[in-house]
């Protein structure tokens, strides 16, 4: 269509798009090529020095990145499994169905930061109720101060907070499924378990892929939970990429270096999520 004034009408949208998306990305790329820090604020040009430093001399970034991969993949898998189980449960005709549907959504209605503060109190080594209860069995895990256990504490809180979201997406998916294939499957000799494996699960594949990808994107931004719960500690054992970038950029004011990390992170995320989406589609949809 040839329309003289189309750019005039497109302008408001384009302006916002350029302002909040394209400009920041370009600016980050430019910033990553500068040595901007607290002594030397300004957009000078130092070439690829920041990237060379990142790839050759910063194991902490890569450690935080692999830690993030571990945390996000584990939490999303757990959220998917638990969310699917809960959704499947209230999808069937059970008693108090409506009550459970609302109950399972409660964590989502709370403010993550506040809930994390409460969880931190729960898991406090000597004052928290969790260890109070566990003292009956004579154990007192260091929920927040043991480098290994702290990771699982983060996973528990993340799973608790975000499973409802998965539950909601999957329940909506289940409710939208046609009823007929289930009738047919029963008559075709499929027991309830086989019915789930051969009918429910494959029919849910497209919705599952969407839900998993959405949650993976969200989970890889994990920051507030870590910040409040452990502040990345003990040491750097729960530090994730975004938290490390935050420390470098907004605490130590190494803006240029933080920008180069952000941009690298963005590229890695785009590539890996594309691959994950492809693999999931191939495995679940057999296409």
């Amino acid at each position: 269509m040839n329309f003289k004034h189309k750019y005039f009408f497109l302008f408001p949208g384009l302006f916002v798009l350029i302002g909040i998306l394209i400009f920041p990305i370009i600016f980050v790329v430019r910033l990553s090529l500068s040595g901007w820090n607290s002594y030397n604020p300004g957009l000078d040009y130092i070439g690829f020095e920041n990237y060379i430093r990142l790839f050759t001399d910063d194991p902490r970034f890569w450690e935080s990145f692999f830690r993030l991969s571990f945390l996000s993949v584990t939490t999303v898998i757990l959220q998917y499994v638990i969310g699917f189980a809960l959704a499947h449960m209230v999808w069937k005709d059970i008693k108090f169905k409506r009550f459970f549907r609302v109950l399972f959504l409660v964590p989502m209605m709370t403010t993550p930061v506040i809930m994390t503060v409460i969880w931190r109190t729960f898991f406090h080594e000597s004052l928290g109720p969790v260890n109070d209860l566990l003292s009956v069995f004579g154990v007192a895990p260091k929920w927040l101060t043991d480098p290994v256990i702290a990771k699982f504490t983060v996973i528990i809180v993340e799973v608790w907070q975000w499973t409802p979201f998965m539950f909601l997406l999957l329940l909506a998916g289940l409710l939208s499924l046609p009823k007929e294939p289930f009738l047919a499957a029963a008559i075709d000799g499929a027991s309830p378990v086989r019915k789930f494996i051969y009918v429910t699960f494959p029919l849910m594949a497209p919705i599952s892929i969407g839900a998993i990808i959405i949650r993976l994107i969200e989970a890889s931004k994990i920051m507030d939970t870590v910040y409040v719960l452990t502040s990345g500690g003990p040491g750097t054992s729960t530090e994730t990429s975004s938290f490390y970038i935050f420390i470098k950029g907004l605490r130590e004011f190494q803006m240029g270096y933080a920008a180069s990390m952000s941009f690298t992170y963005l590229i890695i995320m785009i590539i890996s999520l594309t691959i994950i989406a492809k693999v999931l589609t191939k495995v679940l949809l057999k296409e």
Binding site: E180, P181, L183, A184, A186, R194
Partner: peptide, 15 residues
């Protein structure tokens, strides 16, 4: 699922 019955419905039900 153990009855060994087959059924064709008026709506065309397939997977």
């Amino acid at each position: 699922w153990e009855r060994n019955v087959a059924m064709v419905y008026q709506q065309f039900i397939n997977y």
